[in-house]
Amino acid sequence: MPLTVIKSQDEYLRAIKESGVSAVEFVAPWDESCKAISPKFQEYANNPRWSSMRFYKVDICDQQDVAMDAHVELAPTFHFYRDGAKVKEYVGSSYPALERTMGSVMNGQ
């Protein structure tokens, strides 16, 4: 499933309220950690292993209201929602830690 860039507060609210699992990456485009992990997140979005998860990206510089409403304090931050409820958060740029977090979300933990 492709990664969708969120460009408004309304798009963000629709994305997190969808049924199933949504993964939202919050990035600052100038940040080196974000530049390092964003391509990996894009790979996950295109990987059949994660096909039941929807992937979204929010540029916290362009969408400051979204970042504030989501209580994002650092970038990169990843939020995971199931059926409209936030179930997990990962802050950092470690591929293995992000993948473990995604796995635990998919396993309902």
Rank of each mutant, 00 (worst) to 15 (best):
A23T: 05
M102Q: 05
S8Q: 03
L98P: 11
P76I: 05
V72H: 08
V91D: 12
A15C: 06
S22F: 03
K7P: 01
A75C: 10
D69W: 06
A67G: 13
Y44Q: 10
V66N: 05
K86Y: 01
E99N: 06
V5S: 12
F80D: 04
W30Q: 09
F80V: 07
S52G: 04
M1S: 15
G20F: 07
S94N: 06
S19R: 11
G20S: 01
A70L: 08
V105Y: 07
P29S: 05
G84A: 05
D65E: 12
I60E: 11
C34G: 09
A70R: 04
W50T: 13
V105R: 07
N107K: 13
Q64Y: 00
L3S: 12
H79D: 13
F55L: 04
E89I: 13
F41Q: 11
N47D: 14
V24W: 02
Y12Q: 14
N47F: 00
Q64F: 01
W30C: 01
Q109T: 11
D31M: 07
C61F: 01
K57L: 13
F80Q: 02
S51Y: 06
V105K: 06
Y12V: 12
S52Q: 15
R49S: 07
S51A: 15
Y90W: 11
E43C: 00
A97M: 15
T101P: 10
I6S: 03
I37C: 09
E32I: 10
P2N: 13
V58A: 10
Q42Y: 07
S22C: 04
C34L: 01
A28V: 02
N107V: 01
W30A: 09
Y12F: 15
C61T: 07
I37A: 04
L98E: 14
Q9M: 14
A67H: 06
A67W: 08
L98Q: 12
W50I: 02
M102A: 14
T77H: 02
Y90Q: 08
H71K: 14
C61D: 13
D65C: 06
R54T: 00
A97C: 10
G103E: 12
K40V: 09
T4W: 06
V105G: 09
Q63E: 15
L74M: 13
M53C: 07
Y81F: 14
Y90T: 08
S8R: 04
D62W: 01
D69L: 04
V72F: 05
G20P: 03
G92C: 09
E43G: 08
V24Q: 11
A75R: 03
M102Y: 07
E43Y: 01
F55T: 00
D69Y: 04
K35P: 08
Y56V: 05
I16T: 10
Y12S: 14
F78W: 09
Q42F: 03
A36C: 06
C61G: 13
S51T: 01
D59M: 01
A85Y: 09
D83W: 02
E18G: 00
G108M: 11
G84F: 00
H79R: 08
I37K: 05
F78Q: 13
P2H: 08
V91I: 14
